[in-house]
Every structure is written in structure tokens, then in C-alpha cells.
């Protein structure tokens, strides 16, 4: 029924993340042969671990049709709290527990404000972003806190030759993919994201689903923060900055729709997060002017969002209501 051209367009739209991924890797590969080495790939993967974890959490929220801008602030608050207790003598595991707890609590708070007070997710999490940043600065007195070497050892540790941050990220990714694809909660999340009112009519407890989604997002932000902390070894006042942007961009690059209801962890969010890191990495190898980094990364992200919108419009036009009776009944 559709001309073959439109099918090709649709395929390209649906596989946009893979296409972009291949394009970026091929492009940098041609410009800088050093980019296409195994060592560099593992570098990219290691550097993208925190973004990956944060992007996984954001995928849950984006699937509901909402957004969480507070993830970077959650990372910072958790790190600042950890910095304080570690200076008091606590170890990395206590820090991990604290960051997870802080993340989950803030996420739950977001969820409550969105579901109970019916505030727009954008507004709620933007406010929490600001509050979290301020709170973190107050906790750290805007000074950098250097953490003891145990933290860096954690970040540099390897199990069977694979760095622990990468293992953690892959673990979170797998778990999230399983939850989304294999559990009732996961499938209901997609339903709520597609049409919350229809989900309510179908007997789904939409509020509970949203609450869990925001809590999971906060939890992931806490974990992502811990991984980042173990790689940096210090809490600076800029810790966690821009992660909301990177995380959302990674999820959207991976094909998660900002309108909700569409998107996956594999390969979506995984490709998205590594793609962002790969671009930065490639620009470094090419010795590009560092002031150009944000310009180029943003251009790629803009492209992805454009594709997402086009796809949504194409789908909408395909689903237009049919009024006419077909002239000939197909036999």
C-alpha cells in the first residue's frame, strides 16, 4: 500500500540510533585511525558508565511521557553527603548506600509531587534541580572535597579484566531491560506512557507506576553518581553538572520518544550513551578546539530529537481516523 520509498524512510527513522552510531564511528575512524582501536573503545565504555546508568533511569521516566531534570543535582547532593561522611571516617560502601538512599528519596519526592500534586514533571524536577544544587553547595561550602584512595581503587578495580564501573553499568542495563520487557510493571509502564487515561480505564494504577518510575530514576542517578565519584575521586562544585542533558540525550538518541510509550534500553539507551561519549572522545583525539565540543554534541542531539518528532508525526498521520466506507470490499 505504501510506496517503497516511504518504507525505506520509515526503516531509517526507526533505526536512527544505529545509523547515527555507525556514521559517527565511521567518520571519526576515517579522520583519526587511533579512534578505531580496542583500547579506545574500552576507554569510551569506561567513561560512559555513569551516563549509561543515569540514562537507564531516565528511560523509565521518559517512557511514562515525563521527564526528570534533577538527576545531575541528585548526583551532586549524594556526592556531597558522601563527602561529608567519608571525611568523618566512613568507607566507600557506606558512601554507596548513602548515595543510593539519597537518590531514591529525591526520586520518590519527585514522583509524589508529580502524581499527588499533579504538577508538571518539567516544573517539579527543574525546581528540584535548583534546590539540589543549592543544597549540595551548602553541604560542601562550595569547596572541592578530595576522597580517600579507596574510592579510586573501587573505580579502577577489575573483575576478570573488566572494569567494575563497566560491569555495574552493564548489570544495571540488563536488569532494567529485563524489568521493562519481562515484568508486568514494565509492560504497564509502556501502557501508561502511551495513554494514561486509557491505562486508567484498563484498570492500571497509573500513579503507582509513575511513583516507581521516578524512584528508579533517582536510584539510578545515585548509583551513577557513585560510579562517577569513584572515577574522579573528588567532589567538585560542578560534580554531576549537565548529566540531565547527557542522560536525556542518550535515551532520546537511542530512540526513546519524548512523547512516552516508545523506547528500549538495548540497543537504544546503550547506543545513545556511548555515542555521546564517543563524540567527545573523538573530538579529543582529533585535537578539536574544546570550545566546539558542546556545539557539535548538541548538533547531533538536536538531529536525534528532530528525527523523533518526525517519526511521531508520521505515525500520527498514519493513524488518522477513517470515515469513508471503502468502495470495493477486498475479497
Amino acid at each position: 500500500m505504501n510506496p517503497p520509498g516511504s518504507r525505506l524512510v520509515r526503516l531509517a527513522l526507526n533505526q536512527a540510533s544505529v545509523l547515527l552510531f555507525a556514521l559517527v564511528f565511521a567518520g571519526f575512524g576515517v579522520l583519526a585511525p587511533r579512534f578505531l582501536t580496542l583500547v579506545n573503545f574500552s576507554h569510551i565504555l569506561l567513561q560512559s558508565a555513569p551516563t549509561l546508568i543515569v540514562a537507564v533511569g531516565l528511560t523509565f521516566v521518559l517512557l511514562t511521557g515525563g521527564v526528570d531534570l534533577s538527576v545531575g543535582a541528585i548526583m551532586f547532593v549524594g556526592a556531597a553527603l558522601t563527602g561529608r561522611v567519608v571525611l568523618g571516617g566512613a568507607g566507600p560502601l557506606a558512601g554507596l548506600a548513602l548515595m543510593l538512599l539519597a537518590g531514591a528519596m529525591v526520586g520518590l519526592g519527585n514522583g509524589i509531587l508529580v502524581t499527588r500534586c499533579r504538577l508538571l514533571p518539567f516544573v517539579v524536577t527543574l525546581a528540584v534541580l535548583s534546590i539540589g544544587r543549592g543544597f549540595g553547595l551548602w553541604l560542601t561550602e562550595t569547596r572541592a572535597i578530595n576522597l580517600p584512595p579507596e574510592f579510586l581503587q573501587f573505580g579502577a578495580a577489575r573483575v576478570a579484566g573488566v572494569p567494575v564501573p563497566v560491569l555495574l553499568a552493564l548489570g544495571v542495563l540488563t536488569l532494567a531491560a529485563l524489568i521493562l520487557a519481562q515484568t508486568a510493571f514494565g509492560r504497564q509502564l509502556y501502557a501508561v506512557g502511551h495513554n494514561a487515561e486509557a491505562a486508567r480505564r484498563a484498570g492500571i494504577n497509573s500513579r503507582r507506576i509513575l511513583l516507581v518510575a521516578y524512584t528508579l530514576c533517582g536510584l539510578c542517578a545515585g548509583l551513577g553518581g557513585f560510579v562517577s565519584l569513584s572515577q574522579l575521586g573528588a567532589v567538585s562544585p560542578k560534580f554531576g553538572e549537565n548529566y540531565e542533558f547527557k542522560g536525556i540525550a542518550a535515551a532520546v538518541l537511542g530512540g526513546t520518544s519524548l512523547y512516552g510509550g516508545r523506547g528500549r534500553i538495548f540497543p537504544g539507551a546503550f547506543l545513545g550513551a556511548t555515542l555521546i561519549q564517543a563524540v567527545e572522545n573523538g573530538l579529543v583525539i582529533l585535537n578539536t578546539d574544546p570550545y566546539l565540543y558542546p556545539l557539535i554534541t548538541s548538533a547531533i542531539i538536536f538531529l536525534a530529537v528532530l528525527v523523533d518528532t518526525t517519526r511521531a508525526r508520521l505515525l500520527a498521520s498514519r493513524n488518522r481516523r477513517v470515515i469513508l466506507i471503502p468502495t470495493a470490499q477486498p475479497e
Binding site: 509492560r187 509502556y190 501502557a191 502511551h194 495513554n195 486509557a198 480505564r201 484498563a202 492500571i204 510509550g261
Partner: peptide, 15 residues
């Protein structure tokens, strides 16, 4: 009131 982004089986047994 179905969810086009889910499979038939998932729509049937959503809750």
C-alpha cells in the same frame, strides 16, 4: 482503547 505500542497478548493481559 488498546495500546498500539504493545502486543496483542500484552493488551489482553495488561492487568
Amino acid at each position: 482503547n488498546l495500546f498500539p505500542n504493545l502486543s496483542i497478548a500484552e493488551n489482553l493481559f495488561l492487568t
